[in-house]
């Protein structure tokens, strides 16, 4: 069973959406949705608050809000929820978002707070990782009771 399971994880990857595992033919108890929205900054002159808008008009340097919402639609509690979010190559995670959760700078192999991570540069030097180096972010949620919902997210600037 284990080998089948591992194979399924490899094949399914991130390309298949909510694929139920063959080994456990049951409805997924976690409903997920993710979105990318454009952050329209607050304008003091116009007196408007910051808004999230449909990202139909996106240019380099624009700030995007990436979010993932989850809900436990099953009858049992879900535990140890781990959300792994690769950062698209065309965006740079904001400083604030980078500090808010654990990140990876090596494609998701090792994780930690950004300040603890280092990167080996092309010239051979090893230097502290910066937001430019972030490849993934992850969040962990210990327990989601039946019917409980929440969301996580981060912000990033279009390069």
């Amino acid at each position: 069973m284990f080998s089948n399971f591992l194979k399924a994880a490899f094949v399914a990857g991130s390309l298949m959406v909510a694929a139920p595992m063959a080994a456990m033919a049951q409805e997924s108890p976690v409903a997920l949705s993710s979105a990318v929205q454009l952050v329209i900054p607050a304008d003091e002159n116009a007196g408007t608050e910051e808004q999230l808008a449909e990202a139909s008009n996106v240019l380099p340097q624009d700030l995007l809000h990436f979010s993932v919402s989850y809900r436990n639609t099953g009858a049992e509690a879900v535990s140890d929820l781990l959300l792994i979010n690769p950062v698209p190559a065309t965006v740079r995670v904001t400083d604030g978002s980078a500090l808010s959760t654990q990140v990876s700078v090596d494609g998701g192999t090792s994780w930690g707070n950004l300040s603890e991570l280092v990167v080996e540069r092309e010239n051979g030097e090893t230097t502290p990782a910066t937001v430019d180096d972030i490849t993934h972010l992850r969040w962990t949620i210990a327990l989601i009771a039946p019917g409980e919902a929440g969301s996580v997210g981060f912000r990033a600037v279009v390069k």
Binding site: A19, N57, V158
Partner: peptide
């Protein structure tokens, strides 16, 4: 295009499960 792909792992009754989701796609103007 910018698409957000998220992978999720969790346990139900002590059994590990995994699933993935992809967001709407944003096109850079």
């Amino acid at each position: 295009t910018i698409t957000n792909n998220v992978t999720v792992q969790y346990q139900v009754g002590g059994i590990a499960q995994t699933q993935a989701t992809a967001s709407n796609t944003v096109t850079v103007d």
